[in-house]
């Protein structure tokens, strides 16, 4: 039997060690940032900014979701701002920046995938990345992004359809 009164009890305030939070989550957050930006340097900047924002907001984090979920949310919001910066900087969306490290060579197929994913509208890209690369279910993405499951599903479907068109020569 579920004790209904438990629902009304606010979660206990928790204390978080910044170093521990960063160490446990930095690689996962970096991976998401890399997929959203498509290049190492921006992904590194974005990852760093996620933890700076997280630290500043740590006092307001009520522990109602996992800290990882909360960090993903910050990354997604910052990724949106990054996208805007790209648009307003007049960088052509056709030109996804190449990796800085010369020893990393993408195949033509990978370059095409990066370009196609990079050109998706932000919401579709974000949902596609979280589902395809991070393995989240639609329901979980909805929870992280504060949206309805229906809109997440719609965005995923739209992303897949657009990618089919962009990558039709390769599939």
């Amino acid at each position: 039997m579920i004790d209904q009164t438990d629902k009304n009890i606010p979660p206990e305030p928790q204390t978080y060690d910044l170093k521990e939070v960063i160490t446990s989550n930095s690689q996962a957050i970096y991976r998401l940032c890399y997929r959203l930006t498509g290049n190492v340097e921006d992904a590194k900047d974005l990852t760093q900014e996620v933890f700076i924002r997280a630290y500043k907001g740590l006092d307001n984090f009520r522990g109602q979701s996992e800290i990882k979920t909360w960090l993903y949310r910050i990354a997604i919001n910052l990724g949106s701002s990054w996208r805007k910066k790209e648009v307003f900087s007049s960088i052509s969306l056709d030109e996804i920046p190449e990796p800085a490290a010369p020893d990393w060579q993408d195949s033509d197929k990978v370059r095409a995938v990066k370009k196609a994913v990079g050109q998706l509208p932000y919401k579709q890209k974000m949902v596609f990345v979280m589902r395809q690369y991070e393995g989240f279910k639609h329901e979980e993405i909805a929870k992280i992004t504060g949206r309805t499951e229906g809109s997440v599903k719609a965005n995923y479907h739209q992303a897949v359809e657009k990618l089919k068109i962009s990558l039709k020569d390769l599939i």
């Binding site: 970096y30 890399y34 190492v40 990978v110 995938v113 395809q132 690369y133 089919k164 990558l167 599939i171």
Partner: peptide, 12 residues
């Protein structure tokens, strides 16, 4: 498509 998309690895 999903198989192709999976070929994109993260550059760490």
């Amino acid at each position: 498509l999903l198989q192709l998309a999976g070929s994109w690895e993260v550059e760490m």
